[in-house]
Simulated scan of single mutants.
Amino acid sequence: MTNILVVGDGAIGLLLSHFLSNQHNVYVLTRKATNNTRFYSRKNSASQKINARFISLNQLAAQPKFDVILMTVKAFQVQSAFEQVKPYLTEHTNIVLSHNGMGNVEELKSELIPSQALYFLTTSMAGFKSNQYIVQHTGEGQSVIGGCNSLALKNISTMANTLKSIPKLHATSNIQQLRFEKLFVNIAINPLSALHNVKNGQLRDPQYNSMIINLLTEACNIAKAQGLNIPLINALTTAYNVMELTAQNYSSMQQDVINERPTEITAMCGYINEQGKVYNIKTPYNNQLLAKIQAKKSVV
């Protein structure tokens, strides 16, 4: 069995911990009480105990060596979280990032040695925490893993097999394309749902159409500048499909704003804004949402 450390016990971290613990030794790094049982709940089924061990930072040194570190913290937390676990990496530890938005990959690549593989896992599984110890699995979705450095690209099939207990997981040789496609969905849903305090499905109303089209047009222009071919119609179709599939869900950004937590806006609209400066592409609609979400007291 593989020793896996999951960094972060948000909804996605708990969902992945639940599935991975069916086949592996899973440890979850948390800032909350470590002696409280966590539960996985799905629709009307009985809740199940998540068979992982929850540990605090000062307990890390006493744990076995980790084969995989799966980082499920938010984009803006990745660097600080990585610095905390870096002393516990072995020369062959695999690092897997999983968060909304862009960024962090290049920064972490520069901190790893050639024998440490870096992967990115993107997922459209949906869930939320009904309280700090219970995760509700509210939506099916595919998960895709891809390599971000040469060793990971070489070993992607092995890593996908290791994590195969994650539902509907498959590997890709072009994770950057998949990350960008996921970014489009995030940009279309997260900021608007947070700004207007609505569920995902409500964004299909006509009043939001032009804004969504303009946001994704700018994102497509950035993708094209980076050498990616993602037609606007494809981006819109995917975004509206996700709105329909998660119609009764609130987005993660809406939940962050309501609960006065920092958001991932800088890894979404902020990323488009920064890349627009790099490629001299105007991005007024993404800039506008970036400013509006940042103006809220709950964001950084």
Rank of each mutant, 00 (worst) to 15 (best):
I156W: 03
G141Q: 10
A152F: 00
G141M: 13
A152G: 02
P167M: 07
K154A: 14
L151Q: 09
N161H: 15
P167W: 07
F128L: 08
Q142H: 08
F128V: 10
S143G: 05
M159P: 02
V135I: 15
M159F: 04
L151D: 07
Q136C: 08
N161Q: 15
H137S: 09
T172M: 05
L151H: 04
N149H: 04
G147C: 02
K154S: 09
K129S: 09
N155K: 09
I175E: 05
S150L: 12
I134N: 12
S143V: 04
S130T: 15
Q136F: 02
K164Y: 05
N161C: 15
I145C: 05
Q132K: 15
S165M: 11
T162H: 08
G141K: 11
A171D: 11
G141V: 11
L163H: 08
G127K: 05
L153E: 10
S173A: 02
Y133K: 13
Q142L: 05
E140Y: 12
G127I: 06
A171C: 10
A152W: 01
L163V: 12
S165P: 12
S150D: 14
S173L: 01
I175D: 04
V144L: 02
N174E: 00
F128D: 08
S165D: 13
N161V: 13
M159K: 01
T138P: 03
K129D: 03
Q176Y: 03
H137E: 11
P167C: 07
Q132P: 14
T162C: 10
T158N: 09
E140L: 12
